[in-house]
Amino acid sequence: MFRNNYDNDSVTFSPQGRIFQVEYAQEAVKQGSVVVGIVSKTHAVLAALKRNAEELSSYQQKIIPIDAHYGLALAGLASDARVLSNFMKQQSLASRLTYDRPIALADITARIGDRAQTNTQQYGKRPYGVGLLIAGVDARGPHLFEFQPSGVTQEMVACGIGARSQMARTYLERHLESFESSSRDELIKHALRAVKESLSQDKELTLDNTSLAVSGVDEPFKLYEGEEVVNFLETTFERREEGDEGQAAGEGMEVDS
């Protein structure tokens, strides 16, 4: 059962130079349902697939608005994400209080990156088992950042993480060129379609399982759920019926290598 002797804590390297606990934490991200983020020159969009643990339960929260100008989408351990988002909320309020300015997305991402890194270097700590997409608009325009349990953060044009997200990424890579100049509506469509790509065949995007968040220059971060996403779903997937090429290509791909 045990892979080896070097995965009991997150402070010991394996002879190959790997820290297994961190890698396992990254596996936790892949257990979470898919989330997608895209930025254009004017907007940043997050889209997520929500799961319910059982028929009787409610759906999980995948997108958390943090401040008026940004929010995050999570894949992995929701409770770890909550710890991080609470920290981010506090830092964001602190920035508004001490400087009267919205915190820069690069700053807040770096701060949680630093926090996550200390968990990989102190004995008795455990890495965060969650991946985040942090999207919003600050003084320097729209941004999307990816955060990983290892503490690695990077700015992205488009990104998908979570279960079966490879298909979403393939979709995003295929349309990469068009994102920068996309309008708000086009960007939303791309995000929803990317999420749709990752769905297993028997699943559909519905008003219950879809979360969408949009922020733009002069448009505060807003989360759309339930009835509010119906419109977006209708306009996005009406066209889908006509030309659904590309779906077959995605189907055969391996999940989360």
């Binding site: 009267d100 300015r101 320097r140």
Partner: peptide, 16 residues
């Protein structure tokens, strides 16, 4: 020019 926009403004400085 892009970074200039993100510079701390006089208002930010005053609040601080």
């Amino acid at each position: 020019a892009e970074s200039d926009k993100a510079l701390m403004s006089a208002k930010n400085l005053h609040t601080y």
